[in-house]
Structure formats: C-alpha cells, structure tokens
Amino acid sequence: MSEHSQQEIELQAAAFRRLQKHLMEDRTDVQNIDMMNLTGFCRNCLSRWYQEAAAERGIEIGKIEARELFYGMSMDDWKANYQTDASGAQQEAFKTAFEENVGKE
C-alpha cells in the first residue's frame, strides 16, 4: 500500500467529516434501512468502521460512543426523533443487504 501525503489525508478527512455532517444534520430524513438496502452501508456501518479503525491503532472506542459520533445524539434520541417504521418490503430487502454487506465480514 502506498503512503498517502499529509494533504491527501487531510482532504479525505475533510470529505469524511462532511459526509458525517450530511448524514447527522442535513439528511436526518434518510433512514438507515434505505441506505443499507440501496448502498450496502448505513450510519451504524460507518460507526463500526470508525470503531474498527480506532482498534487497529490501539484506541478503544465503545459501540455507543462510536454511534453517537454518527448520529450526533444517542441512538434512543435518534430513533425517537427521526426513525420511521420500516415496511415489510424494506425489512426483507434489509435481510439480504445485511447478509451481503455485513454478514460476510
């Protein structure tokens, strides 16, 4: 793997922070189940990837803390404020998307 320049790392980090803000503040209407079904990842995946990256560097971040970084609040608060009920079709599609994208890791 090639070394990234400091500038490239900073630009990637800035783009990542913008994605984080977009999902946390700008598009609270976008449901995780729809993200997973369409893209194969959601806010929970991002928080898990962040947690895994920290662990690879010897930094321990708990699941709750990592999720709060991508929700901007607790999961309970997010669910109460923004999460809608998923239809049967969404739930069925999620089973497939989860298995294909998360279950295989």
Rank of each mutant, 00 (worst) to 15 (best):
G62S: 03
H22Q: 13
L19R: 02
F94H: 03
C45K: 00
G62D: 11
L46I: 13
D85T: 15
F16T: 11
L19E: 10
M73I: 02
R43I: 11
T28S: 05
R27M: 00
W49V: 15
A66F: 03
S87A: 05
R27S: 04
E68T: 13
S47N: 01
D77V: 14
D85W: 05
W49P: 08
N32R: 03
A89R: 05
G88W: 04
T39W: 13
K63L: 04
N44I: 10
K95G: 01
K63F: 09
E65L: 07
M36G: 08
A89W: 05
A53D: 09
E25R: 06
A66I: 13
S87L: 01
K63E: 15
G88E: 11
Y82I: 01
E60M: 10
R27A: 04
A97E: 03
A54V: 05
T84C: 00
M24P: 06
R57E: 10
R18G: 09
M35L: 14
Q31H: 12
N37Y: 03
F70Y: 07
L38R: 11
D76E: 06
Y82S: 02
M73Q: 07
F16K: 00
I61T: 05
Y50D: 03
V30P: 01
D77G: 02
D77I: 11
E60S: 11
Y50P: 08
G72S: 04
F16G: 00
A55L: 08
M24E: 06
R18C: 04
L38D: 15
Q83E: 15
Q20H: 13
Q83H: 08
C42W: 08
K79G: 02
K79F: 10
I64W: 02
L38K: 13
S47F: 01
E56D: 11
L38C: 12
D34S: 14
R48C: 08
A89Q: 10
N37V: 14
R48F: 14
